[in-house]
Nucleic acid binder design. Sequence first.
RNA 1: GCGAGCGUAGCUCAGUUGGUUAGAGCGCCAGUUUGUGGCACUGGAGGUCGUGGGUUCGAUCCCCAUCGCUCGCCCCA
Length: 423
Amino acid sequence: MTQLRPVRGTHDLLGEELRRHRKVAKEAQSTAALYGFEEIATPIFEFVDVFKRTLGDVSDVVTKEMYAFTDRGGESLVLRPENTAAVVRAMLTNGLTQTLPQKLFYYGPMFRYERPQKGRQRQFHQIGVELIGAPEPEADIECIALGHHILTRLGLGDVVSLELNTLGNPESRKAYRTALVSYLSGFKDKLSSESLERLERNPLRILDSKDPEDRQIVDGAPIVLDYLNPESRSFFEKVKEGLHQLGLPYTLNPRLVRGLDYYNHTAFEFVTSALGSQGTVMGGGRYDGLMRVMGGPDIPGVGWAAGVERLAMLLADVAAATRPVALIPIGERAEGAASVVAAELRHAGIAVELAYKGKPAARLKKADKANAGIAIFLGDDELDKNVARLKNLDDGVEEEMALSQLVEQLLARGLGSLDRSSP
RNA sequence: GCGAGCGUAGCUCAGUUGGUUAGAGCGCCAGUUUGUGGCACUGGAGGUCGUGGGUUCGAUCCCCAUCGCUCGCCCCA
């Protein structure tokens, strides 16, 4: 019994939940394609350095959340905690830096060793995009627009809102950091213990502390916007203007920061209040410094990642894919004939539910449970005449149909067809 | 790593102020005579009452421990 449970923080995906999950991944992939993003699939584990070098020593993702292990060859490996670094690694590995910009979409599992709670698991899934090799603010705008487009197609346009901030270029970010630390240092006796620690490691993080007292202090803190140099300011203005032109509403949130070190300029999140304390559903920004940190050329990038489970939780139920056709043989002679007919229908692309045993009544019950739209009776009477008896399971109306007409007629009516999902 | 709540059938939950064979609804299986479902009726399967220990004549119920789940903090998608 204790052996037969999933590992903490992992879940089996099935039924309704899996359908929602799949819908998120599918809509995201096809929408991304409209923007010219092509899918890339990288391994789910990498050498530990791929993440250690990029995420920085201050990030919790590295210091305590990585699923790291040594394989039999003595290599230090890690189940990927996020995918941006892996995608960038793949670009360098495959020489994609020669053809820029690269627009890449991904979907897959990520792993972080943390305490599970609502909207947080140890194995979870992300969709994400990386637009690499474009320093222009237009790239940021396109990424955000794509994210918004996906959320809208998922029916979450009203559930989720966009928050926007900038960290400025490295020079501005540094200047702001200095100012912030100097301000916060005046409150050392009042800050929460967590924030005191962050003051050393990652002071920007204090800005989004949930501690009430921290928030009061933060309310009086200097804000990034006042420390932007002309270049950073102009970049941010262009991003905002672009969003405005596209009619994408956003809220400026000067306390919005990114956890990871290599971010600069644009930072954004799509958030919701419907998920408890894990409100961020999609987060991203610009990471111009990343490629170089990884030992590659100085190539800028921008992108985002979104939690599939979080999005799936927000989705309304997704209908089961197809209503099959139920084939019901009556009598021994019909059993054989039915499996031949079933094969014929299936090869024509029609989903067929074929019970293995039971009286007609029992098989009809099974047909109901399989959500069949129509039942096809095949008995001696019918076989003698080369016909089948069709029964519409919604209104009970029956009709006789020549066996030779079956495929054509079912297709014409869209019955059992996989490409037509019923409501 | 820290804090809080919760663990009784596949699911949602009753229950005993400690006392014979632990219940309901839903779901599942079968039947209600000959080749027709959804409804109804009847019957059935399914529980070491999370696990281990303690108190007691007796524990699912009280106590302790442990494991697990959930939610929150940290952090993040």
